[in-house]
Design a protein around this nucleic acid. Structure first.
Length: 574
RNA sequence: GAUUCUGUAGCUCAGCCGGUAGAGCAUAACACUUUUAAUGUUGGGGUCCUGGGUUCGAGUCCCAGCAGGAUCACCA
């Protein structure tokens, strides 16, 4: 971040003052009535030319092309870019040519918002353009945008690609790289179409607490915070599962919630500390029913977003039309390693891991060992949507025991393109069993597992009143959007991914300098000379500073009064 | 957290063996009435990420730090 204003920023501020001096408000308050958009004009003008004899459009100026008394510029609105054409004598029919010669040619910059009124025509080179009859400055831009040039073949020159700048200043990214807006428009469509699907089934959207006294429903480390009035520790939720189940106890048949979850863990290509999930719980259903629901829902969403149920992700063409392949966890391991782990005890599993070169440690139990084998050998192979079902009970404290297979639970995860995107259970509604599972978690916590779930007595109380058999599902929205938009980092599908704070250089305010006697108009000069704090200034040689001020005044062609030498000396005495 | 790469003008990037900091675009001035990566001429613009060290001399070499990327580890 630059400490002082760059040459171009100073110039733009001067232009701002000149505009005001001409009686032009650079930030006018009035509504500006727009009658057309760039996309609308470009798509329809040739078909219905009469409709576009008088249009008013507004947007940002993204390029200039001035040729004497005629000019072209590109205006970018939310739908795209369109060329505008200005002729001096159209803008200024009388003797006074200020509006064109000074305001348009000298005082407008790339990035300014303007509104124009005119008629649509096609130039000699065949480009649909707006011939401007009136223009209005709508907002002056004081910071130059990065310049991205595109040639006729669509090649991009000087692309604005630095991920750090793009994520920190998403407003700049989406202005100069508007094609990335598609990702976020699709994201919005994913959520709205999924909501439509759930609503059409009669399920109800609900909101549950983000601030929770007990963080339950998942295995993860939470963010801690504190409520002052209650003087108690609160956690940002790592999941909303236990609250949604309370609502099923309360008598709703189907509830779902889109929302942010917060996990205080590592960040990488597929993890952001806050992320969006949707969870849905439907009474009187089981996980078998849920598989079919997910197939219907995801096909519906994929069609809504892409028009077809197929989406290209990297090299793979992924088809979301069901039914999806179903494999039990044991079957999947058998399929990809040839090993049957279903009857193995812990010792045998450890040997298998060793044979397969999978790293393990002593704390891992049977369930974890199986999961390790699965992660290492199976996951990456699951490209087309695939259900993995029937997980070891040790890893899943909130799922119902399997109806027929000992030691397993009724759970599935949906894998697509080698990644898990959904997780579902026949929910555990036996309060006695649930209490035992929590107690097992407490044991794990006692052994040092920081992610073990806490006992939630109120949730158990709710189950004791009776929860109908229920199936529940969670989908990671960010990862699903990554699939739908063919992006391979989560940062690309979040408007504002988490970043470390920007380093801000220590800078004294102008007031601090004025307090020690520096005239206001000289503060910036001192900044430009490298004195950003009073301490830095005082450490300098007063005589040299005085001399350099004269030099800077000349160099910057400043028309301001030179302070007397005694005045400068006084700065160093206070 | 580990490894590795990167950080130079508003933006994208050069910068050799350590010797006064470069280009394109943007910007300013002039010319130009259908351009489109417009063009031509001229000019201005720099805390070379920060702090140390080596050296007569550091954008460049060394050390530490900061920020970001990639890979790995952790993590439903």
């Amino acid at each position: 971040m630059s400490i002082v204003l760059s040459e171009q920023e100073i110039l733009r501020r001067e232009k701002l003052n000149q505009l005001r001096a001409l009686g032009i408000n650079p930030y006018p308050p009035e509504e500006f009535k727009v009658t057309a958009t760039a996309q609308d004009i470009l798509e329809n003008f040739e078909k219905f030319p009469d409709t576009y004899k008088q249009v008013t459009i507004a947007g940002r100026i993204m390029s200039f092309n001035v040729m004497g008394s005629a000019s072209f510029a590109k205006l970018q609105d939310s739908t795209g870019r369109i060329q505008i054409y200005l002729k001096r004598d159209d803008i200024c029919p009388g003797e006074d040519k200020t509006l064109y010669n000074t305001v348009f040619k000298k005082l407008l910059d790339l990035g300014d918002y303007i509104g124009v009124k005119g008629y649509v025509f096609t130039t000699q080179t065949g480009e649909v353009s707006v011939h401007v009859q009136e223009f209005t400055l709508l907002s002056k831009s004081l910071k130059p945008l990065p310049i991205v040039k595109r040639d006729e073949e669509g090649n991009i020159h000087d692309a604005f690609t630095d991920p750090e700048l793009r994520y920190r200043q998403r407003y700049v990214d989406l202005t100069v790289n508007p094609e990335f807006k598609q990702i976020f428009m699709k994201r919005s469509k994913v959520i709205s179409s999924m909501r439509d699907y759930f609503n059409s089934q009669g399920w109800m959207e609900v909101e549950t607490p983000i601030l929770q006294a007990i963080h339950g429903g998942a295995a993860a480390r939470p963010f801690k915070t504190h409520h002052n009035t209650l003087d108690m520790q609160l956690f940002l939720r790592i999941a909303n599962e236990l609250y949604l189940k309370r609502l099923i106890v309360a008598g709703f048949d189907g509830v779902y919630e889109f929302g942010k979850m917060f996990r205080n863990e590592g960040m990488d290509r597929t993890h952001n500390p806050e992320f969006t999930s949707v969870e849905i719980y439907v009474a009187y259903k089981d996980y078998i029913w849920m598989m079919e629901m997910v197939e219907n829902c995801l096909e519906y969403v994929t069609r809504a977003v892409n028009g077809i149920p197929v989406v290209q992700v990297g090299e793979n063409e992924i088809n979301f039309a069901g039914p999806y392949t179903r494999l039990t966890m044991y079957e999947s391991i058998q399929k990809y390693t040839g090993i049957d782990v279903s009857a193995m005890d812990e010792a045998a599993l450890r040997k298998t891991c060793a044979d397969l070169n999978i790293e393990i440690d002593d704390t891992m139990g049977k369930g974890k060992l199986i999961d390790e084998i699965f992660s290492a050998k199976v996951e990456a192979n699951l490209i087309q949507p695939t259900y993995i079902t029937d997980y070891p009970i040790e890893m899943t404290p909130l799922a119902k025991k399997h109806r027929s297979k000992e030691g397993l639970v009724e759970r599935f995860e949906l894998f697509v393109n080698g990644k898990e995107i959904a997780n579902a259970y026949s929910e555990l509604n036996d309060p006695i069993d649930q209490r035992q599972r929590f107690e097992e978690q407490l044991e794990l916590a006692g052994r040092g597992d920081q992610e073990a779930m806490a006992m939630d007595d109120d949730f158990l109380r709710a189950l004791e009143y009776g929860m109908p058999p229920t199936s529940g599902l969670g989908i990671g929205i960010d990862r699903f959007v990554m699939l739908m938009t063919n992006q391979h980092t989560i940062q690309e599908v979040l408007f504002f991914p988490q970043m470390r704070p920007e380093k801000k250089a220590k800078v004294a305010t102008a007031d601090d300098f004025i307090k020690i006697g520096v005239p206001a108009e000289w503060v910036q000069v001192l900044n430009q000379m490298g004195f950003n704090t009073i301490e830095e200034l005082k450490a300098a040689n007063p005589n040299k500073v005085f001399n350099d001020l004269g030099g800077m005044r000349k160099k910057l062609k400043l028309d301001i009064t030179m302070p007397a030498k005694e005045v400068v000396m006084a700065w160093f005495e206070k």
